[in-house]
Simulated scan of single mutants.
Amino acid sequence: MEYKFTKDNFDAEVLNSDVPVLIDFYADWCGPCQMMGPVVKELASEYDGKVKIGKVNVDQQPELASKYGVRSIPYFAFIKEGNLCDDITGSVPKSRLVSKLEAMV
Rank of each mutant, 00 (worst) to 15 (best):
P62N: 07
Q34V: 05
D48L: 07
Q60W: 06
E46H: 03
G49N: 11
G54K: 00
M35H: 12
M36L: 15
E63S: 15
K55M: 03
M35C: 11
M36T: 10
V56H: 13
W29E: 01
D28H: 06
D48W: 02
K55N: 03
E42I: 05
E46G: 04
M36K: 05
V51E: 03
V40Y: 01
A44Q: 05
V56A: 08
M36G: 09
E63K: 15
Q61I: 00
V39I: 15
D59H: 13
L64G: 04
G37N: 14
M36E: 07
M36S: 11
V51Y: 09
A65R: 11
K52P: 01
V40L: 13
D48P: 04
L64I: 00
V39E: 11
I53H: 04
N57Q: 07
S45F: 09
D28W: 03
V56R: 08
W29F: 12
V56N: 08
A44S: 14
Y47F: 15
D28A: 13
D28R: 15
Q61R: 14
G54V: 02
N57G: 05
C30W: 12
L43C: 11
I53A: 02
G49T: 09
Q34D: 03
C30A: 05
K52R: 13
D59C: 11
Q60E: 10
L43G: 14
V51S: 08
A65H: 08
L43M: 10
D48C: 03
C33T: 01
V58D: 00
V56P: 05
D48T: 04
D28E: 09
P62T: 09
E63F: 00
K41N: 12
K52Q: 08
S45T: 09
K50H: 07
M35F: 08
I53Q: 02
K50R: 15
P32N: 03
V56F: 08
D28N: 13
G31D: 02
K52C: 06
W29S: 08
C33Q: 05
K41D: 13
P62D: 00
E46Q: 12
S45D: 12
P38T: 10
W29H: 08
E42G: 06
V58T: 09
L64W: 11
K41W: 04
E42V: 02
G49E: 07
P38F: 05
V51I: 14
N57L: 12
K55R: 12
M35N: 15
E63T: 14
G31E: 05
K50W: 07
A65I: 05
Y47D: 00
Q60S: 13
K41G: 04
K52F: 07
W29T: 07
V39N: 08
A27W: 14
